[in-house]
């Protein structure tokens, strides 16, 4: 692809003096965070429909407010039930679907938009650069939650609204980092050679510059998953995120808030699910950054 090693190889060389083999790399994976993620987020998100013991939306009134298993409850409702007799465990499993799909869709949208604009700004410079970077400044100066609230009120809370909000919050960071990266990549020899060889701007950007900025983009994306999940949970908690009765973690905490004295499990377990998931995601993101792009320390 290019005639110079990618940053990942350079870093690995600095650390070990030789290129890491596939298995050596695998052995250094952060196993505990990955295990937590698989168990808490990925398996439930993919298979909640078959694995969840109960219906997440329709509860049975006789089973309302059952405590969790080690607090006077039974294994039938391992984490207890809420005010409408819905099984908390089943709802958490279905909630994983919401968290996972929103973070993937939001980061994809924000990442693609920000990367595209960052590539344009960094490669073409000039007027496009000036306009895009001013937009970045303005976006970063806006308090994001407030805009999310405004959007949710004017357009109405929905899955799509959240994606728009997440995209809006994320794109500027990508645009700024990618632009900075492109500014240095475009001065390297292989870009000049590609140009001499008659490659079009589009080809140079897609085939020569983008692959070299890929590490930055991947690291940013990993580091952002946790904060996107927190953002979605916060919006849902405030009632401007996922609409009821869809089981979303933030919404479940909001549901249990009034009952925290009598039925603490309703709010406690969904919040714990958020905490563990984001904790694991942040560890994974840190690990990814240290391996692929250690210069991103500040982000």
């Amino acid at each position: 692809m290019t005639d110079s090693p990618s940053p990942a190889d350079r870093v690995a060389d600095d650390n070990t003096g030789r290129k890491p083999g596939f298995w050596r790399g695998l052995r250094r994976l952060p196993l505990i965070p990955m295990f937590v993620l698989v168990v808490l987020l990925i398996i439930p998100a993919l298979s909640a429909d078959w694995l969840a013991p109960h219906d997440p939306i329709r509860g049975s009134i006789p089973d309302r407010l059952k405590p969790p298993v080690f607090f006077g409850g039974t294994w039938e409702f391992a984490l207890g039930t809420d005010r409408l007799g819905r099984d908390i465990l089943s709802r958490i499993m279905h909630g994983a679907k919401v968290s996972l799909s929103i973070s993937i869709a939001g980061i994809l949208a924000g990442g693609v938009l920000g990367t595209a604009l960052g590539l344009i700004a960094g490669y073409f410079r000039g007027l496009a650069d000036a306009i895009i970077m001013r937009l970045v400044d303005i976006t970063m100066a806006l308090p994001s939650i407030l805009l999310a609230l405004v959007l949710a009120v004017t357009v109405g809370p929905s899955f799509q609204t959240i994606i728009v909000v997440v995209t809006f919050v994320l794109w500027a960071l990508y645009a700024r980092q990618v632009r900075g990266e492109v500014l240095s990549i475009r001065e390297r020899d292989f870009v000049a050679r590609a140009r001499v060889a008659g490659a079009s701007d589009l080809r140079i950007i897609v085939r020569h510059i983008l692959p070299n900025a890929a590490n930055t983009i991947i690291v940013l994306a990993t580091l952002q998953v946790g904060s996107v999940i927190l953002l979605e949970a916060g919006l849902s908690f405030l009632g401007v995120g996922i609409p009821r009765p869809t089981p979303a973690w933030g919404l479940m905490v909001a549901d249990g808030r009034q009952l925290i004295v009598s039925a603490w499990w309703i709010a406690f377990f969904p919040g714990l699910a958020i905490t563990l998931t984001v904790f694991a995601l942040n560890l994974l993101g840190d690990w990814m950054r240290d391996r692929l792009d250690p210069r991103l320390k500040e982000v």
Binding site: G226, L230, A233, G234, F237, G250, V253, A254, G256, R257, I260, V261, W264, A267, F268, P270, G271, I274, T275, L276, V278, F279, N282, L283
Partner: peptide, 18 residues
């Protein structure tokens, strides 16, 4: 530090109250 960055603040608030 890692805990602080992982806990949703609204949930932390509710748990603290509890």
């Amino acid at each position: 530090a890692l805990l602080g960055q992982a806990m949703p603040n609204f949930w932390l608030g509710i748990v603290l109250i509890w």
